[in-house]
């Protein structure tokens, strides 16, 4: 399993041709308490960098972009009742959706964890 990161603070972990997408610990901290999350439905086609999900804190709403293109195979329904999972476990139970990658080569344009950590360090 490999994990990749975007400059918009999404992560994607990939096993075979299926990826799981969420937002990073940095992102959940920046957003603050998550009070609402909207995940895409199974079957929805998403494109790299395109809107895929929504996450809202008390203060504001933010888009979650898909790190790569593909077809959604599942949304994390647990987030509807427990949006705080995104704060508690951003890289675990707080995942947003899974998708079947349509162009795995897009992963090459993403950062690995070390590169992402450097990127975040540069933002602070």
């Amino acid at each position: 399993m490999s994990m990749y990161f975007t400059k918009d603070h999404e992560w994607i972990s990939v096993e075979g041709s299926v990826g799981t997408v969420g937002i990073t610990d940095y992102a959940q901290k920046a957003l603050g308490d998550i009070v609402y999350a909207e995940v895409p439905e199974k079957g929805r086609k998403v494109t790299k960098g395109g809107d895929a999900a929504v996450v809202e804190s008390v203060k504001a709403a933010s888009e979650v972009y898909s790190p790569v293109s593909g077809t959604v195979t599942a949304g994390n329904d647990a987030l509807a009742g427990q949006p705080a999972l995104v704060n508690e476990s951003p890289e675990g139970d707080g995942w947003f959706f899974k998708l079947e990658l349509s162009n795995p080569a897009e992963l090459e344009e993403l950062m690995d964890r070390a590169a992402y950590d450097d990127y975040v360090a540069g933002l602070e």
């Binding site: 603050g32 308490d33 008390v58 203060k59």
Partner: peptide, 12 residues
């Protein structure tokens, strides 16, 4: 200050 470490939800 928009929030302190307690966070908006906790402060509210």
């Amino acid at each position: 200050p928009v929030q302190y470490p307690l966070g908006v939800l906790g402060e509210h």
